[in-house]
Amino acid sequence: MIEVENLTKWYGNTLALDQATFGVEEGQIVGFLGPNGAGKSTTLRILTGFLPATSGQARVNGRDVLLESLAVRSSIGYMPENVPLYPEMRVEEYLAFRAGLKDVPAAKRRAAVDRVVERCWLKTVRRRLIGQLSKGYRQRVGLAESLVSDPPVLILDEPTIGLDPTQIEETNKLIVSLGGKHTVLLSSHILPQVEKACSHLVIIADGQIKAADRLDELKRRLAHRQQVVMELRTADTGDGPAEVGRAFGQVAGAGDVRTEGAGGGWLRAVVTPAADADLRQALCAVVAHRGWQLREVHRLAPTIEELYARIVAGEADVGKEAA
């Protein structure tokens, strides 16, 4: 549904996109992540026909974004980070106007407006002037505008900026409900939102695609360096936190060891592997040998924040698969 091949963009002497390649299949909800200045906005502007690429190719819904720009734009619902609205227009008036520009038949515009007003929680403000709305409501108007023509592809750039936690949760549910019928490319800095809504990730940094795959697959590839958390009691042996750290640090494959109190005389130790290793058996052997009491042992799966940070920093070679 979205195909990007060797997309490159120069701004004068500045390279913004460096042969970016990724794909989004029909019906997928894909998170598009990257730090500021990574090339996200440039990519979205090229996909939506607002900006030409220097080289490479991009297709949306089977159409070339450069050679068939109008056809591509008609198949996309685009919500930019800063939604351009007409403050002097009323909400339903604006949505009807935009529906007309998007070739929604006149006989169907009222129903289209009613549908997106309902889906985006705008019923109480549909007759209000847009200029009188809060930031959160203006964001919802922008989301409704992107949906009003019921396009097959949605490109959403920071859709929850300005929303309160309840509205963010409701927006997540809406985005998830769009999957299947719509193909969604979601750019956001709110990583928990991306984790809840998206099955796939595309991560870009320094203009290059660093990873493109299923979220669970990316986590699986990083799972080999999962931290081990142990809760133990050492009071009967007289060993303190420093001795626990020293003993665990001597285990083959152990890297950083952190210890902290866990309450009630228990100690929590967090051991990070130095390489690809599961340290649980070796650490439990140390506990048994030293006569310590063990209450709990488990591995910490990488969070999306850790996954993102490691990939962007180049600390994890996860490869690139089609999203």
Rank of each mutant, 00 (worst) to 15 (best):
L156H: 15
K219L: 09
I203Y: 12
G207D: 12
R220Y: 07
L178E: 06
L218R: 00
H200L: 04
L156G: 07
H224F: 12
E169S: 10
L232E: 03
K196M: 09
Q227D: 01
V244M: 08
V257A: 08
E195F: 05
G240D: 11
L215Q: 08
D206Y: 14
R246V: 01
D164K: 12
E170N: 02
I155V: 12
A223W: 12
G255R: 14
S149I: 06
D213A: 07
Q227H: 09
F248Y: 06
H224I: 07
R221H: 05
V176T: 05
R233H: 09
V184D: 04
G263V: 03
S149A: 15
D150R: 14
A247H: 14
E243D: 10
R221E: 03
V257I: 05
G265I: 01
G263Y: 11
E243F: 06
E243T: 09
R233F: 01
S187W: 07
A252Q: 00
V194H: 01
I209N: 12
H182R: 13
H189G: 04
T237F: 10
D239L: 14
H182D: 01
L174R: 11
G255F: 04
I155R: 15
A235L: 11
R258A: 15
L222I: 07
I190G: 00
L222F: 14
Q208F: 03
G265N: 08
A223G: 11
D213N: 08
D256A: 08
G207V: 03
R221T: 01
G207M: 06
F248C: 08
G265C: 08
Q167N: 07
L232G: 08
G261H: 09
A205C: 14
K181F: 05
G238C: 08
Q227W: 12
D236S: 15
K196Q: 14
P151K: 15
V244P: 01
G180F: 14
L185S: 00
G238V: 03
Q193P: 00
T183D: 01
